[in-house]
Design a protein around this nucleic acid. Sequence first.
DNA 1: CTGTTAGCGCTTTCAC
DNA 2: GTGAAAGCGCTAACAG
Lengths: 344, 344
Amino acid sequence: MLLVRNRLRTTFESGSGVTNIRDIAAEAGVSVATASRAMAGKGRISAATVERVRAVAERLQFRPNEIARSLSLGRSQSVGLLVPDITNPFFPELMAGAERAAKAQGRTVLLTASLGAESAREDLRVLCARGVDGFIVVGNPFESSGELREAVGSRPLVVVDRAQSVTGISTVVTDHVAGAAIAVRHLLGLGHSRIAHISGPPGLDVTDLRIAGYSREMRAAGLEPRIADGEFTVDSGAEAIIRLLDGPHPPTAVTTANDLAAVGAMNAVIARGGHVPRDLSIVGYDDIVLARLVHPGLTTIAQTIGDLGSCAVEELDRQLSGDTEVRRRSLGTRLVERGTTAAA
Amino acid sequence: MLLVRNRLRTTFESGSGVTNIRDIAAEAGVSVATASRAMAGKGRISAATVERVRAVAERLQFRPNEIARSLSLGRSQSVGLLVPDITNPFFPELMAGAERAAKAQGRTVLLTASLGAESAREDLRVLCARGVDGFIVVGNPFESSGELREAVGSRPLVVVDRAQSVTGISTVVTDHVAGAAIAVRHLLGLGHSRIAHISGPPGLDVTDLRIAGYSREMRAAGLEPRIADGEFTVDSGAEAIIRLLDGPHPPTAVTTANDLAAVGAMNAVIARGGHVPRDLSIVGYDDIVLARLVHPGLTTIAQTIGDLGSCAVEELDRQLSGDTEVRRRSLGTRLVERGTTAAA
DNA sequence: CTGTTAGCGCTTTCAC
DNA sequence: GTGAAAGCGCTAACAG
């Protein structure tokens, strides 16, 4: 076939130096519309044309401008991901899972870390303006799920790691009640009976659920629950364990709201000359990478954190495909035994 | 026929029910162009009109569609951030700094975590297609800086944490030579003389620079450098320290390539019944959050990691403003003394 | 000062 | 099967 090469160089100058679909069309000797159809591979178009256009596109390293596609199609193949605190190691693991899954779907993740409700509202608006097709929100930066719903408008939304307080919104969670119960049973099995729980921030559903699981299991064993408020942070874990140990009937074992608090508790015990697990058995929650890095390694309730992210992406994809049913997906947890628990 | 539109999506249905600038213009009784100027607040326009249009925009909660702006303006006010591994706690801290700075500039960060050169090439192309205005690349996923330059095309580029191997590209780094030297001097000051160094992966410029700083300082003190290869990971740190301790003339102190390796070394010593810092003093590098969380707390060379990110954003902003000068910005390091170092 | 017009790069009718 | 043209929402000449 005769190659008619018409003013490739000229069209090259247009735009920002990158080849666009006009260049492809010109080089292939077809109209822009045909080039578009050929690239999409759908619509009424001959196989020969498809092949020819694609060959040209390949040669010229053509990548369709996603900005233009987004504007034209009304969707961007990108999703917004809002996390509360990127420096808390729990979230990067989740983000990694989400990003991997999104990439596999040909979507891009627009990440944003909020600092409180006001910032979150603005962050979500920015992402809306950037045309994300849907949102994954980890936790809930707002007082209510209504506020969250309002902030994302009509876009599909999946909430991760908040269940109770979120109504009418698809969620991905782990079974906090079951996880907390597993921790208690593990300690009971080791012969402990003075088992306390260092909780998360009061009022949070995750906190309540874990407390519920802990309490249920304690009562089932005929024991009295004993709870110290914490905050999901190392320092709060340290403070809480000190209060418990200095109080009446100090515990011989604790379950904690998360691994950070567990590490804080562990360090506090060691700092006052105690030994873990001899003087105190500790069970964390989450199994973040840190749990493996401390010494002794932290016995903990593992959530497959990356799966929370990838499941959220899958769930969002389902919604983007038109399925509007509200689903609550609950992932399993399991005990990972390391070095912070031992017989009473 | 004027009112008949080819596509039946009315303006209100388009997007997702969000008000657009046509709605604003109509409501304010001006043309779209005038509304645009009023929102931008520049061009020849009366103060009264500006006020009126903005009032309407406020009332209707108007946010300009950034996709459309991007297409029209040829820039998106977004930057691509490529990191090697989001689950290594070093990077989230850097990302947090970058995101904060970018937000302050009204830019959005498109994050992507690569897994090797092939993935990076594709990731960068995707971000290019999404129209990012520039790139921040942490490390260099490729063999050469040329490949990196090619992958980002003509877009502004800032490389973080790689200096030597990157030519003709603006960089933000910390002074690894100086940092490594500080670590050695600290140990010398404590009376140590058998000081080893657990290095990063061979061939990496960061590795070489830290080795250089360590060696220089050792020789200046009339001591023989002693280096064990590591890999920036916990496990490699553990293995390296075992090799050193089981070899001839076991060291009484080590400096390490990063905090993860330091933690690995620390755990290995403790695991074989040793005590840190009594049996071995350890100095980490980076001061990631983890350094505070282990027990005893890790003495380390602090890079202000968040600043690496925010400086990179600033540097990129400078380039986006038209300043094409290649700059190398070097941030300081300092010793953070915690519990892993003690007198010999 | 304001409106009209022409695009940004792509997709998608609608004719031929 | 293919091309011409409209249009996504916005900005920026250029007239008036």
